[in-house]
Design a binder for these strands. Structure first.
Length: 286
DNA sequence: CCCCAGGTTCTGG
DNA sequence: CCAGAACATGGG
């Protein structure tokens, strides 16, 4: 009961599965022994693999809930396949540091996740590490998400969390973040914030609105806008990007990248975090 | 036992 | 307004 979708890519380096699915933007995928990745997005369980210039997605949908065309459209959007990354890489390569970053991880792409999932995921991400973030999100889905074929669970809808208590969330072991998740779910559920409605706001207004949620500061708000709403001008300033901007761009990040700074950030983040050659000083700070 | 983790909030100057 | 501490939890 699955369909296999095949997407032709511009080249074999157009996407790296590990660099894209396991780089701290989506927390729902894990690698299989054969190198493919399996996970859930948009209520669809899928196994994703890459050979040559073809991205294959075996999608296990709930029966009768979506046509192959819907699935195709969903995954094309999820992997941001409608965006021309070659043009962006060319632009970024006008800067020496970004040129190195792009060359180091040319297959990094933005994943276009659902807004509420991005909101919860990056609330959980604060002062936390990626393996534990994945664990908490996994338990969140098991506890409050709809079961899917294959023993997987969809990401919970706001109504499944709204009205719960901190004690109800105890099994997640999310620590002090539980109260933040509850506030986020309640505000979205009761309409005090409309995630879809944020699309019609300016970047600044949308950011301010998101920060009304407890536990959502500038960094988490930027992640929600970037990963959950594809606001690619949004530049989340985490510790690594702060280091990169301080040490590699003391004169400021190139202004011509501003409209797509979020995509540039994807390369820079991965480069600085995993490539020793990037030469960032980690400790120090005064 | 200490430090750290894709931060935010709270508190004292 | 701003620097530090506190915040839960788990791994090193």
């Amino acid at each position: 009961m699955s369909h296999i979708l095949r997407f032709s890519l511009p080249g074999p380096e157009a996407i790296s599965l590990p660099d894209t699915l396991d780089c701290g933007q989506s927390f729902r995928f894990s690698q299989n022994p054969d190198g493919s990745f399996s996970g859930v997005a948009g209520g669809r369980f899928a196994t994703v693999s890459l050979s040559d210039s073809t991205l294959s997605v075996e999608c296990f949908c709930r029966t009768g809930e979506s046509t192959p065309a819907d699935c195709e459209s969903f995954w094309r959007d999820y992997f941001d396949l409608n965006r021309d990354y070659d043009v962006l890489k060319l632009l970024f390569s006008s800067d020496e540091t970004m040129k190195k970053a792009v060359a180091y991880c040319p297959g990094v792409r933005l994943l276009r996740q659902e807004p509420f999932e991005a909101l919860c995921s990056f609330i959980i991400s604060q002062n936390n590490n990626i393996p534990r973030i994945k664990g908490i999100i996994s338990r969140l889905c098991e506890c409050f998400g709809e079961p899917l074929p294959g023993g997987q669970f969809a990401f919970p809808i706001p109504a499944a969390i709204a009205g719960k208590t901190v004690e109800d969330l105890a099994p997640l072991r999310s620590g002090f973040r539980a109260k933040y998740l509850l506030d986020a779910a309640e505000r979205v559920h009761n309409g005090s914030i409309s995630l879809c409605g944020l699309s019609r706001l300016s970047y600044d207004d949308a950011r301010v609105k998101l920060m009304e949620i407890k536990g959502v500061g500038p960094k988490v708000a930027d992640c929600v806008l970037l990963y959950g709403m594809a606001r690619v001008e949004s530049l989340p300033r985490d510790v690594w990007i702060k280091r990169a901007l301080e040490q590699l761009y003391p004169e400021g990040f190139p202004e011509e990248f501003a409209p797509v700074a979020g995509i540039a950030q994807q390369y820079l983040f991965h480069y600085c975090r995993t490539c020793p050659e990037a030469g960032l000083v980690v400790k120090s700070e005064k």
